[in-house]
Design a protein around this nucleic acid. Structure first.
Lengths: 338, 338
DNA sequence: AATCACGATGGAAAGGGTTGCATAGATTCC
DNA sequence: GGAATCTATGCAACCCTTTCCATCGTGATT
């Protein structure tokens, strides 16, 4: 049988109530008493039973986290960071996967809502309509998803696109393709918008959108042919996985990266660093966003007003091997020279 | 306030005790009554409060799962599969990460042991000595780790190596390098042994071990030069991540894969399918092993004797683009010809 | 027909921690 | 100096579910 708070109380010579107050930090206890209780707890190796404390207290010190796909390193990193940081704050994170099933999401959320202090939602799919019902289910924060109703943490996609384009322009590229993601994806829409904004900032650069491919390796493979046809000397891909598919297809078509064409990805997944050539990519500040999200959620759960309703973080450009200056006379070689 | 079992009991016209029995399926209750209770629960949208039921019942319907690194797709897949399957069985999986810190592992385990029905341990590091203390902490099953004390699920590494070597031999390779993993790693030791066994099965093949590199991308990069020096026409890499590093280095050294040299990886991580060329690799049956592990653990937790003390699963070879017949005259080209 | 065994059910305790309320002592204020 | 305020603490109720134990029929056994 495990050590209970009663054992600690006896050892410290106080009542269980006082021991509880001393250990949770709620209510007022004499500092000396509190220290005695903490010592007793340490000496006995006491650990609070999280299930029991969830029972009476309105608070459970648990957070739910909902992601579409744990295999996706983007979400894996998000989960990992959130879990680590929440643990520091004394919270347990329960992770649930929706498998990209938007219907399952609300269901899942409802079933956990009473059992946790708040939910961290990382599913870019949630329909705008569902968000209204979502706020009824208790505190929630969106991660990498904007909302009018729910506080959120997001990275500045426009800045990310700008960093990538700036870099390519500095290398000397004048015609840049954007290989677009799936039409129905909210996050692809956001990125598409960002490309439009950045395109307007560089009036003398051709920023052409091609594709709308699946956000998968095969999508990139399919996009490869579109990119070649576009005549661009550089591509910004919807994300890293698409970029890797692209890389694969371009190699098959006999183009060398970065000599013949430059590629920039998005997200900086681990595989991006391990491809040949290694992928230049826009890194999202995942760990920071997870921390920020947990911070907001915990504040909300405690009934405090969070400092801000939205947090926007800055992505960074990781330059590796897939970008270089364009070939001197890429397509024009057949015209004057030779 | 959420709906409690009391509400359900009232609606079904029974006592909470009977309602509990009807819903959990324990004890004996009249089938008609049970149906009435289930109906009432459904109509009210009742969901059992997991924290409360953990409290009294000796059983928590929760499992702990301990992995070294969630970012590693190998473990991510394991977690995902375990979680999905456990959920079908009505169990919640709490995931904890050790960050490759063996000391943290036992600590972590101890702190969870009282709060869960059992632990699924996927950390190949656990010292043999620690395993004794581990069994005191309640039911546990090892995943991809053998043990004399603890039931385990593992895949047949020797078979995996044999599949890879068989395939390379069939392609015509006669000198094959094995790029070894870290000396101190238990799982590398296992693989090394398997290579020795398979080497003995093919007496007319040179199966040479090179390296002992870190199980990271950089390890593969470093190993590349060793592999080239070995004069082998094909390499079996410690795992996929190492194989990707190898691929990168070989490309840099001007060798074409698979024309000049064939590469086989191990694990079939997602990145293996997305490299150029895509990696031929030995796929471990992760989903199956997770299911088998959960099955064993749940049986153990229920006090049943598990059907078997160890489950050995068969890996498969996924042939992609990184393997091909050796070049006609690989290194001898400079001798007689030209 | 009386006894037994057993299935179905309810009452109540238990599980471990938190919290409302009451109280005692210390402090402050007029 | 007495009343009011505040702090520290304990008692007991409470959170929700499960389970032990007792009870009550009912059908079977002798």
């Amino acid at each position: 049988m495990a050590i209970t708070i009663r054992d600690v109380a006896v050892r410290a010579g106080v009542s269980p109530a006082t021991a509880s107050r001393a250990l949770t930090g709620t209510g007022s206890v004499d500092p000396a008493t509190a220290a005695r209780v903490r010592d007793a707890a340490r000496e006995l190796g006491y650990e609070r039973n999280p299930w029991a404390s969830s029972l009476r207290g309105g608070t459970t010190r648990k957070l739910a986290m909902i992601v579409p796909d744990l295999m996706n390193p983007f979400f894996a990193e998000l989960v990992r960071s959130a879990q680590a940081y929440a643990h520091e704050l004394g919270y347990l994170v329960l992770v649930a996967e929706t498998d990209d099933d938007a219907a399952a999401e609300l269901e899942l959320l409802r079933s956990m809502a009473d059992r946790v202090d708040g939910s961290l939602i990382c599913t870019p799919q949630t329909a705008e309509a569902a968000q209204g019902r979502l706020v009824d289910e208790g505190p929630a924060v969106f991660l990498h998803r904007m909302s009018r109703l729910v506080p959120y943490v997001i990275s500045d996609v426009t800045l990310g696109v700008r960093l990538a384009v700036e870099n390519l322009v500095a290398l000397g590229h004048r015609r840049i393709a954007y290989l677009d993601g799936p039409a129905e994806s909210w996050s692809a829409g956001l990125r598409r918008e960002a490309v439009a904004v950045v395109g307007a900032e560089f009036p003398d650069i051709d920023l052409v959108t091609v594709g709308q491919v699946r956000a998968r390796f095969e999508g990139g493979v399919a996009g490869g042919d579109l990119v070649i046809a576009s005549g661009a000397t550089a591509v910004l891909a919807y994300n890293d996985v698409v970029a890797l598919g692209l890389l694969h297809r371009l190699a098959r078509r006999g183009l060398r990266v970065p000599d013949d064409i430059s590629i920039v990805g998005f997200d900086d997944v681990p595989a991006a660093a391990m491809s040949s050539p290694a992928l230049t990519t826009v890194a999202q500040p995942l760990a920071e966003s997870a921390r920020a999200g947990v911070d907001m959620l915990v504040a909300l759960a405690r009934g405090e007003k969070p400092a801000q309703r939205a947090v926007v973080l800055a992505p960074t450009l990781v330059v590796r091997e897939s970008t270089a200056p364009p070939a001197p006379q890429p397509a024009q070689a057949s015209r004057g020279a030779a």
